[in-house]
Amino acid sequence: MANTGSGVWVVAETRRGKLLPTAFELVTAAKSIASQRGETVTAVVLGAAEGAEGLASAGAAKVLLLEGLGEFADDACAAAIAAAAKAGAPRTILLSSGVFGRSVAPRLAVALNSGLGSDAVALELDAEKRLVVKRAAYAGNVTQKVLVKSQSGPELATVRPMAYPRSAVNGSHGTVEKVQGDVSAAKGRTRYASFAADASPELDIGAAEKIVSGGRGLGDPKGFELIRALAQAMGAAVGASRAAVDSGWIPYKHQVGITGRSVRPRLYMACGISGQIQHMGGMKSSDVIVAINTDADCPMMKAANYAVQGDLYKVIPALIDAIKQARG
């Protein structure tokens, strides 16, 4: 049975009553597909969330608030979205490919008898207007195009954070509807116990437009004071290489790379990072790369748009001064 659905849904992730900005990236991605098929975009919001109505004025023709879900449990979220999708019959459903998308999208695919393309850096349609996901494999050395052959269910894809710009408020007026989420299929097997926020709430590398990262070249944990000062001057998030994390200089959640997290900021500043293949695989699709390193021939300096050879303990303080001067 072919997919007879219509419209593109985006699943808007919420955390503790707040809408995550990836929802607006998904709307942009969804619009690129929907406009080619003459369809509209529906944003499905998990739980009542601050700012969710904003999606209705940023390109979503309809905002569907799924209520009564509580905090994030994989099976309950998937059950509620699947139940809503069975009722609403979209042709395509998009999710963001963070922990949430990797947890929920496969469950949706099985529940809805769908194909799932993962971690798209771009979405396309083939000649029959079927979804094609462009994605990175082999540590970013290979680009795959994956055709999602929808069976009876909608075609599904997760989209890498920062792959699409956030849809801006454009004066459109979508409708907002509230629906009670149906979590019965989850059978109450997962209980959400508690949440512990990060001790120092810093900008998350996954959603950051700019990242300043430090590596082995810092030499010791105090080097991250310098990295943080530069990040603050730039308005950037703080990243790190595996070497720095394994040395215990900074927590794992800052680790950029295949073993940490893949990021795609507009600007990535690598300080004292030589550019091991695992690290490069997680950041080389950044728009602009700056490298600061003593070794002019290391892979990061070769890949950088702007390579600064020098001792980072001399270059970074000078850079912070120059940024402050430039900002007046």
């Binding site: 955390r15 905090e71 994030f72 922990v99 959400y192 116990a193 512990a196 926020a197 959640k253």
Partner: peptide
């Protein structure tokens, strides 16, 4: 481990 902190689940 989530983007904003740590969830505990049973």
């Amino acid at each position: 481990l989530m983007e904003d902190g740590v969830d505990t689940l049973t």
